[in-house]
Design a protein around this nucleic acid. Sequence first.
RNA 1: GCCCCCAUCGUCUAGUGGCCCAGGACGGGGCCCUCUCAAGGCCCAAACAGCGGUUCGAGUCCGCUUGGGGGCACCA
Length: 506
Amino acid sequence: MTQISAISENEKPIRTRFAPSPTGRIHVGNARSALYPYLLARRSGGKFILRIEDTDQKRYNPDAERELIDGLHWLGMDYDEGPDLGGPYGPYRQTERREVYHEYAWKLVDLGHAYPCFCSPDHLEKVRQEQMKQKQNPRYDGTCRILDPDEARRRVKNGEKHVIRFRMPKDGKITTTELLRGMIVTDNSALDDTVLVRSDGLPTYHLAAMVDDHLMQISHVIRGSEWLPSMPLHVHIIRAYGWDEPMFVHLSVFLKPSGKGKLSKRDTEGAIKDGYSIYLGDMKALGYTPEGVLNWIALMGWGVPEDDILTLSDMVERFDINSLTPSPAAINFAKLDHFNGAHIRLLGADDLAARIKPYYLDRGYPVEDSMLMMIVPRIRERLVTLDDCLPFGGWFFQETVTPKAEDLLGKNLDPRASAGIARKIHEVLEGLPDLAPETAEPPMRILVEQSGYSTNQVFGILRTAVTGQTVSPPLFESMEIVGKEKVLARVRNAIEILEKMPPVGG
RNA sequence: GCCCCCAUCGUCUAGUGGCCCAGGACGGGGCCCUCUCAAGGCCCAAACAGCGGUUCGAGUCCGCUUGGGGGCACCA
């Protein structure tokens, strides 16, 4: 791989970040918001940072940070700096940085770009209602904007409850640049005197994120497109401080599979019913691999010219931030299945064995590694999800199988005829030295020919007898693994079942 | 209601004015392979939202319309 330099166009080292708020479970949207900045950093030899934006205590979920970190680890995205790792620009949890924000907020007040506001929530709400009634845009009415600065400062010192608002210019325009969308011109009159610091002393996203991105030397702010409308505010804040602007990149949202409406929590119930989920924690349990999930989310919003099956390191090699797409993308679970199956097929035998073993262990099967290693190559190309190893390979580990009587019937055959075939099968198999495909298949083919039945009929009966099911890996290879003794016992069991069936058939 | 963003097959996308009667992938259909199910191979159907410009020439540039999405909190 050609290592491109860690210097961005404006000569600054590339540093990207994933800055989630710990409010809920980590889902595919979060994962993708982490992926692209990760890829950019790794591609360019830069740094990737995890920052926890936990300034909203009402929505704080104590388990969320753990799940976030677990999810990142599961997908294989390692970060260079973060709350659990530390780093030169920490702390990386915003609630641990209150003093920093406090200092910077007042700096903005000193600069004349912000002011304390003492309006009560009640007053604000009343103003908003009034504006809505008159079909005006709801916005701050500016009551405290014109307060004398010294007077305002005195009231703050006296402990009066207040917030700090940005002093948005009343007129003029601001021109901002977004990497994927170009220049965006916004009338300042469309912007509001947004709250920067809440009355509880904690900053809002707008202040905290801008301060942190600056202090942490973030070169590319890659985030969801829900932030696009507030980018002008953010640039105003940055310019008010006189800081350099990072490159802004806004990712498109994920739409529900129908393409109608954005993906939401409510859509997950339907998905789970079908064996899918948008939450990383669930996906692992559903048998999805990190490789498959990663490939799936990477390609929704990133146009790669060819060669769709990519591992994380492939992605690092080919990533180009300019080829991200700005339009919303509908998620498609069928494609997830495709990627997952494709990556399972790419796995080495040892690797795949290690990943499916827990499924068998959970079922209480006595797993012998030598047998597991024989099974893996037989079932590998049949697995869409890892837990498919149960239906395809679980029967290998069982002492006996319990086929359904009707499944033992050869196609279009009655119980008597089927039992007759089974007896002949037993006869032939019993006389063989072993059940390797080379020794077992030729005589069985001869049996088929002599019996006058089709291979499907004869092998179908054998398959169900030996595996207990109508779908299985290749018969003869499977029988070799199971062993002659067990195979014969299972065929005898099948004969017994068939003989007990009513003559006309089930 | 106001502001902003987006717009190529059903879905994800390639395409940066002539290489495009638009390419790939998923999904769908067919055939081949075949002991079942897969995997694999081959083939088929399937799109530039509409209307106006600009240009010798437009999927590609501009405008409008339509559609979709996002935002308008002391949430992120």
